[in-house]
Design a protein around this nucleic acid. Structure first.
Lengths: 340, 340
DNA sequence: CTGAAAGCGCTAACAA
DNA sequence: TTGTTAGCGCTTTCAG
């Protein structure tokens, strides 16, 4: 490995000068700088980032903790976060906790404040938050995709108004004339997606519609689970004219179940989800959903984390991200005259 | 930040002893060790990984370079690779090149040999390989998911016999009686997926079937593109009884196009892909495909990279990964009597 | 079994 | 404008 001092020797200067060339090029005479640059090129020198991190006291690396990257939602967040981090001169280290809090704790312990200058934590539960607070004072931790803007967590966070997302879905279905609506409530790693379902039910209740237990199923977050649950839902309540799912994977699974059951989507049954993952517009019929602007939230999160690193605060300030927006595609339509 | 020497002071020993406790616990008297451990716990000490990396000359971090994590194939690889790395005591840093060779080069330059002890590179093209060789001698680079076992690249690599995957798909369709078959050839970032299509065509040719140009479309790697291309294919050649796609995204898109066209899958038209991504068994009808054992390849790659780190070699040795396997699901069936 | 000392490669005052 | 001098926090000989 070529080191700074080898470069210095070859350019007949000292390490400090080489270092200066590498950063504030101002204080070096042009011809010296040129000699140094040539030496760097000749030797194929590349700075050792560990040494630099140690000397500078920061690594220019952010960590992103998520439960399981095989859920298609995460890659979209990762992609946007990584771009934002790169643009700001940081690396992004993706840490899969594999849905295992123990792994999450281990990562946090090892990484925060040493490998990473700051940590982004997604979809966490209360217990994990407690852990974050108790253990780590050495680097900022920012919770992101927090689902409960009305109850700020005891850490800095970026929240998303998921209740509003649910409400938008409800309004859309009501406007289309649906009254008898089934619900698929996802159970992500951060716990039940109840902000979404509560937002939905609040609007329904206002319209005088009470969703009873039989029309509401709790399921794991996946296309498979949505498919199976929808089958069950339609068996319980064959007259449902619409299905609301708290996330797109469930909604996609539900739509496929309906097609298998020979119930046309949206002519017989409408389907709506939340998130607007890429898959949502790629399936057929394309999914109507409530977009939560994943990429924008990712960028916001990275920006804010970097700001926290630069000006550390203990205050658990919460920022509410961009508002969810209804995206009407092909999976929802007016309630048919024939149906109940 | 609590440092080693603060711990040492509190335990009334020197840094060296604390370090010894943290690693080869043998050479420390139990009661001293206990005192040190208590000090560590009391102070909430966590070792600075950058300092350790600098002192040890290695970071225990691997980097994985991939083009775009939003392609659902990658997260599955990442998940498996990350588990394998973690099991072996390494971190995994995921680097998205965003389909941009410039970004890829920048990452490699910065990371290899400094932040990361070794680098896994997926789906690369020749130009990038050249760059890898010319620039980096400081850390092993392992190419993975190499598609051409018959022409080893000038770097260590894990290859997958994609031609065989194509051949298996061809054999399956032939056995089902299909003769008039459309082809969707994906154009990943590593270039055209021609090993797959050539493997397929070789088997067809042996059976006396020549795939003509009109029945073969080159498309970008996505569900969307597969959907559109399939529409076009069926317009060109309405009598096709099967479609072979070089990857599952294309196949899924194709199946959806067929459903939109009211051609039943597989009763009217069979569809087969390659890879066996998770989506493949979650869509309906579930996709018949040729599995390339992504997780196994990921583990193999990580193991081999770690081995390379421990015993560096310049030899561009190639290891061929697990053989592809046909996975029959619901999207392929016998050619119907009625069809051509 | 424990301590002293050197050094990993780089940065950042401060001097010259 | 350039050089000198201390470290950053840890590991690792080598003495004691």
């Amino acid at each position: 490995m070529v080191t700074l001092s080898e470069v210095a020797k070859r350019a007949r200067v000292t390490a400090a000068t080489v270092s200066n060339v590498l950063r504030n090029r101002e204080k070096v005479r042009p011809e010296t700088a040129e000699r140094v640059l040539r030496a760097i090129a000749d030797l194929g020198y590349r700075p050792n980032l560990n040494a630099r991190a140690l000397a500078e006291g920061r690594s220019s690396t952010l960590a992103l903790m998520l439960s399981n990257i095989s859920n298609p939602f995460y890659p979209e967040f990762v992609l946007a976060a990584e771009r934002a981090a790169r643009k700001a001169g940081h690396f992004l280290m993706v840490c899969n906790t594999d849905d295992d809090a123990e792994v999450g704790r281990a990562y946090l312990n090892q990484i925060a404040g040493t490998f990473a200058d700051g940590v982004l934590v997604m979809n966490t539960d209360i217990a994990f938050n407690e852990f974050c607070i108790s253990t780590i004072q050495s680097a900022p931790i920012l919770l992101t995709m927090w689902e409960h803007p009305e109850t700020p967590p005891p850490l800095p966070c970026i929240a998303v108004d998921f209740a509003r997302a649910g409400a938008l879905a409800a309004t859309h279905l009501l406007e289309l004339g649906h009254r008898d609506i089934g619900m698929l409530v996802g159970d992500g790693c951060g716990g039940l997606q109840d902000a979404r379902s509560n937002g939905f039910r609040a609007v329904m209740r206002e319209a005088g519609i009470e969703t009873d237990a039989a029309a509401m199923l709790q399921v794991r977050d996946s296309i498979d689970a949505g498919y199976i649950a929808c089958m069950q839902l339609m068996a319980n309540r064959p007259r449902l004219s619409a299905i609301f799912a708290t996330n797109d994977l469930l909604a996609i699974g539900a739509a496929q179940a309906l097609i298998t059951l020979r119930r046309a989507v949206p002519d017989d049954v409408s389907v709506i989800g939340i998130t607007d993952i890429q898959l949502a517009h790629q399936v057929h019929p394309a999914l109507t959903t409530v977009a939560i602007q994943t990429a924008a939230v990712a960028e916001l999160s990275v920006d804010r984390l970097i700001r926290l690193i630069q000006a550390p605060t203990q205050q658990p300030s919460m920022v509410v991200g961009p508002a969810p927006e209804l995206v009407v595609r092909a999976s929802t339509g007016p309630r048919r005259a024939g149906s109940r």
